[in-house]
Design a protein around this nucleic acid. Structure first.
Lengths: 223, 223
DNA sequence: TGCCAATTTAAACGAGCGTTTAATATTTGG
DNA sequence: CCAAATATTAAACGCTCGTTTAAATTGGCA
């Protein structure tokens, strides 16, 4: 894995049609490696090699390793952030469609498993490189949308009256996120891979648990 | 934090009454630093300095940095493992005392917050240093006790008949563990510190959620 | 008393890291 | 067609890390 030879490319200013070729290769390699193994576990040389270039290009285009990480992250996280935010921006509520919530969260988490790894590596640790940024830019605004929806649901009599909104949010996040964070352990132990049919079963299970725990029972009794 | 001076101790063979003095100091410093920041984030020099000695002593007593980590971990994890295992070894069941379960888990997790950090740092990552060991020695046996208890509860008619035992276990773990793993983010965002009163509230909340979601309702209706 | 084994020290080693440099080749614009 | 700007390379720099070494100092024991 170390003595891999890089095929050197032509020096000098490249023709205009193929601009920023190396830059994109670096971003792509950074996405693949950083998000799989974490910032510290991947060396600048590895990324450069994977991108078919030299570490000096990281400095040339992104000043340093962290600059490359940041540039890559911005590209990677934006569509996901929008996707999740959209699943909360339902002014149509307050039926509090828990099934839609849970499904949206877990489907995106399953489709972008790097998110769980990234969060565990860079935002959960006390001195995680992106902890404060994540809290400011992602967690706080989304949590405020979240609790807002839940408050409205409670006002509409859907959420059980004596359930704390913050605890309800925490329960939902726990049930939806933990399985992905712990997948490298719970997968082998339970023999479950969070995709396809098993994922759908878990979604159904989670919907059931938090519906029973958080929502006033009405028509459920009939089934 | 770097230019701290170490007070050199007397050379030569120490008097017999104070044996393995440095060894214990190293173990104690390793416990404090490794479990707080993770194996990679702490240097051998830091630990040696914190223990009032030199890095060479790590080699002398534990061969290398990893040896020190392992020795420290064994000491640290054993009482916790026994404590948690005991909370499952209730042949007295099957009333499936969920409150006792949840309380035992979350109280120990709260009293030993380093566990969550350790698990996130060293066992959840795909190439976590203790992932396979943890799966073999801790996760698998405990999960088998866990599912056994749940199976018995279902046989006794306590657990809802159509709830999968593995999913039930996963839900319980999610609700009980995730809050500690994510505490550095959810703490600031929700304004909740998992200790004292807030911890008790969360325990009650979790008991309620998973009782409603997993257990057949009987006397609950009356309240 | 004197030697041996145990313990500790200061210093250095070698590898790997992120980063920087200086040279070089190429395209573009005047 | 030439000069300036640009992109890339190979090499090395300086630092930190885990680990090792060689010497120094002491207690126990014959």
């Amino acid at each position: 894995m170390k003595t891999q030879r890089r095929q050197p490319r032509q020096r000098g200013r490249p023709p205009v049609e193929a601009e920023a070729d190396i830059r994109n290769a670096l971003l792509e390699a950074a996405h693949r490696l950083f998000l799989k193994h974490g910032f510290d576990k991947v060396t600048a040389r590895e990324i450069a090699l994977a991108a078919g270039t030299t570490p000096a290009m990281i400095h040339y285009y992104f000043t340093n390793k962290l600059g490359l990480f940041r540039a890559m992250l911005q590209q990677a996280i934006e569509p996901v952030r929008q996707q999740l935010a959209a699943s909360l921006a339902t002014d149509a509520a307050p039926p509090l469609d828990l099934r839609a919530f849970v499904t949206a969260y877990m489907k995106t988490a399953a489709a972008n498993q790097w998110i769980a790894t990234f969060v565990v590596n860079e935002v959960f640790p006390e001195h995680g490189r992106f902890r404060t940024t994540f809290i400011r830019e992602v967690a706080t605004p989304m949590m405020s949308m979240f609790t807002q929806v839940l408050e409205r649901a409670r006002a509409g009599g859907v959420l059980k009256a004596d359930v704390d909104v913050h605890f309800a949010a925490l329960s939902l996040l726990s049930l939806c996120i933990f399985p992905f964070i712990s997948r490298n352990v719970t997968g082998p132990v339970l023999g479950v891979q969070l995709e396809g049919d098993a994922l759908q079963q878990l979604i159904d299970h989670n919907v059931r648990v938090c519906t029973a725990g958080l929502v006033n029972q009405t028509e459920q009794r009939l089934s």
